[in-house]
Amino acid sequence: MAESTTTQHAPAGWHKPDLDLSNAAWQSSSQGMGDVQIAFVEGFIAMRNGGRPDGPSLIFTPAEWRAFVIGARDGDFDLT
Results as ranks from 00 to 15, higher is better:
M1N: 02
A2K: 01
E3K: 12
E3M: 10
S4N: 10
S4M: 02
S4V: 00
T6W: 09
T7V: 14
Q8T: 15
Q8H: 03
A10T: 05
P11E: 04
G13I: 01
G13Y: 11
W14R: 10
H15W: 07
K16N: 06
P17H: 04
D18K: 07
L19H: 02
S22F: 04
S22H: 14
N23T: 15
A25R: 07
W26P: 15
S28R: 02
S29K: 00
S30Q: 12
S30E: 13
S30V: 07
M33F: 13
M33T: 08
D35P: 02
D35G: 04
D35Y: 00
V36C: 11
Q37I: 12
Q37G: 06
I38K: 10
A39M: 10
F40W: 12
V41D: 05
V41Y: 12
I45N: 14
M47Q: 14
R48P: 11
N49M: 05
R52C: 08
P53W: 02
G55K: 08
P56M: 08
P56Q: 13
S57F: 00
L58I: 15
E64Q: 12
E64C: 06
E64N: 01
R66L: 04
R66E: 11
A67L: 02
A67P: 00
A67N: 01
F68N: 03
F68R: 01
G71A: 04
A72C: 14
A72H: 07
R73C: 00
D74T: 07
D74I: 04
D74A: 13
F77T: 03
T80R: 15
